[in-house]
Design a protein around this nucleic acid. Structure first.
Lengths: 241, 241
DNA sequence: ATCCGTCTGCACTGGTTGGTGCAGTTAACC
DNA sequence: GGTTAACTGCACCAACCAGTGCAGACGGAT
């Protein structure tokens, strides 16, 4: 039922709308306009929805910004609500994939656990602070009351897949003796909470951009605290702050 | 510049609109209708804005639900935007006061530090999970892009006053030897992050209500981790989970 | 050459809504 | 009793917008 399945690996094409070329003058000549248009509509719709809000955003504006006739939008999605759901699903897929890829870097753990955790922490922090991620979160918070089914579209499961994947990796590390034994789900939740909680407080609803140095400091502090509690005392537990 | 200053300690009166009484039949006979109406408009406006979203919410609906003529709203606030700002400011004052009161319970700390921290943690969790608090957060996330000045209305300062107050209390505890010495601001941030981060993940954008037992578990886990890192090892550090 | 699906530009409508104007009512206050 | 200020009910306007209809253009497939 997910819409993201239709996202083939095409280039987003008319994202920023720089070229004023007529339709059909793409670099890829063999491509029919269909997928291109659909992608352009989806990305543009997400941008406009996030910028103006669902109710304020007009289909005329989306059509103009995507360099597409309003009718084309109705041909593809038929409905403003359907367009919103599809745009959010596509963006959520992007964000989810990036987060899972970050967590997956714990798989090739070659010795220095603290360094590996800090690396993953920095990656996750970067995902969290991404402008598009904030736009997605704002949009979800805004419209979740109107469209409760957005929850299923964006994650589906009851538990956050990212935290779950993190718990998987922590479980392997525990089994290998690199972390204290215990509930890996609880450990993953606390590590994630340390990261996202601090960032949420510092980002001020996404209006403030956090410099890279501060992002790294947050990740390091989170990993410090995490290893204090869940680490085995083998040479990586330094004093906090 | 805050609007909350006008909030005298009146009863919200027509919040849920149960009585169908004619105007003027209040219990307090000496009161002019002015403050009553203003309060009713503010609370109702917040409820409707949170339920429908700013753009979707109509002034006719707010007027009807507050049992007030639409003209009265314009008399008081003159503008839909001004009404939104005033309603959010009033609700933010409420929430902030509750949070600060919770943190202030650390002031009369009589011996059992873990119990005191867990008490405060439970209070803060309860504040965070409150339905109105979620409504306020959703509304802020939704409209912060349209009205960036809502940030100043809701907190004003650069750092969150609640975390700052918590840092104050933790500093006193450190000075008294009950906590490890270190940056109290960092400690407060991590404790707050452990609480809010976990809750944010579990609440699913405010659509899920967390039972009291689960709330207490979150608070206990957060305090456990916190004391592992920042506590002096005097008899209160148990193994996590 | 022909067919057919996609895309385009434009005009149109039906409904909604922020905001205003006005006449009339109530109630506190002097 | 008279003044004044808040409140009410209703009608009204102008703007905005989702969604539709239509006629025509482009381009690939056969």
């Amino acid at each position: 039922m997910r819409y993201g399945g239709l996202m083939t690996g095409r280039t987003p094409a008319a994202a920023a709308g720089a070229d004023s070329a007529a339709p059909g003058s793409r670099a890829r000549p063999g491509a029919r306009g269909r997928i291109d248009k659909r992608q352009a509509i989806l990305t543009t719709a997400f941008v406009v929805f996030a910028r103006e809000g669902y109710a304020q955003a007009t289909l005329d504006a989306i059509a103009a910004e995507a360099r597409v006739a309003k009718h084309t939008i109705y041909n593809h999605f038929g409905d403003k609500q359907t367009l919103l759901r599809a745009a959010i699903a596509a963006e959520a897929d992007r964000a989810m994939a990036r987060n899972l890829a970050a967590v997956d870097r714990l798989r090739d753990h070659d010795g220095d656990l603290r360094a590996a955790l800090e690396d993953v922490g920095r990656q996750l922090v970067e995902c969290f602070c991404d402008e598009r991620a904030w736009a997605l979160r704002r949009l979800l918070y805004a419209e979740i009351a109107q469209f409760p089914d957005l929850l299923d579209i964006v994650s589906g499961r009851a538990t956050d897949p990212v935290t779950e994947a993190l718990a998987d990796r922590l479980a392997r590390l525990s089994l290998a003796g690199h972390l204290r034994a215990g509930d890996p789900a609880a450990a993953a939740e606390q590590l994630a909470a340390l990261l996202t909680g601090s960032l949420e407080a510092r980002c001020r609803y996404g209006t403030r951009v956090i410099p890279a140095a501060e992002q790294h400091a947050v990740a390091r502090a989170a990993v410090d605290t995490f290893l204090h509690v869940f680490g085995t005392g083998s040479a990586e537990t330094a004093a906090p702050a």
